[in-house]
């Protein structure tokens, strides 16, 4: 059911992705605030098929030189490319005091046993400002291989960015800043260098009182 409805290919599928802040020492859900969240653990045939976006519409929002989105897309495979529009939830009641933990967790699944490399590039005006590269090994569970990046600490740049964003008095000002803030995640098979998933993230601030929202698109080139 997930094919065409969520982020994934027959080789690797995103199960969950979240960025959060949490009061340390009390890791229960009540003290955790989710800035963004994708959960694809229960795909259904009733879910809508993904709409598509022409990848050329967003080239300049991501690195354009060597290893940039254009070069990655031309190399393919095209079915591994997705765009996520996040409406981030900045409406947290957790006090930003020392000891608060900022983290990112994600989980992938695959029918294959691989070692994967996950690169996350934070970009400002399309230029990379920080990159984190993580390597994950498979764990066999319930008939498939799971890759779990659990509570990876958020980098200082992102924490400061969130702080500054929250200080802006109006949502339109936050959205104006977010127009030039993007993240590109590339997951590759470490041993073969095959590209498994490429996810481009763009942002607005949520106006909902029900937490973070998102739309997922396939990236195409017609």
């Amino acid at each position: 059911a997930w094919q065409g409805r969520s982020i994934g290919t027959p080789k690797l599928r995103l199960v969950e992705f979240l960025a959060f802040m949490e009061q340390q020492g009390e890791p229960d859900a009540y003290n955790k605030h989710l800035y963004v969240h994708i959960s694809q653990s229960n795909p259904s045939y009733s879910d809508a098929l993904l709409e598509s976006v022409d990848v050329r519409q967003i080239y300049d929002k991501f690195p354009e030189k060597k290893g940039g989105l254009k070069e990655l897309y031309e190399k393919g495979p095209p079915n591994a490319f997705f765009l996520v529009k996040f409406w981030a939830d900045l409406n947290t009641s957790i006090q930003d005091e020392p000891g608060v933990f900022y983290g990112v967790s994600s989980q992938y699944e695959s029918p294959e046993n691989m070692t994967i490399t996950c690169s996350s590039k934070v970009c400002s005006f399309g230029k990379q400002v920080v990159e984190k590269v993580e390597t994950e090994y498979a764990r066999f569970e319930n008939g498939r291989f799971l890759y779990r990046i659990h509570r990876s600490p958020m980098c200082e740049y992102l924490i400061n960015f969130i702080h500054k964003l929250k200080q802006l008095p109006e949502k339109y000002m936050m959205n104006s800043v977010l127009e030039n803030f993007t993240i590109l995640q590339v997951v590759t098979n470490r041993d073969t260098q095959e590209l498994l998933l490429c996810i481009a993230y763009v942002f607005e601030v949520s106006t909902s009182e029900h937490g973070a929202q998102h739309h997922i698109y396939r990236l195409v080139k017609d």
């Binding site: 598509s52 967003i58 529009k85 409406w87 005006f125 399309g126 127009e179 106006t207 998102h214 739309h215």
Partner: peptide, 24 residues
């Protein structure tokens, strides 16, 4: 933004790109 950048609103993007989903 940079002067050579086209605002996102002026690009060819699906209408849903500007509609925050309602929580399910």
């Amino acid at each position: 933004g940079r002067p050579d950048q086209v605002p996102m609103r002026k690009r060819h993007l699906p209408a849903s790109f500007w509609e925050e989903p309602r929580p399910s």
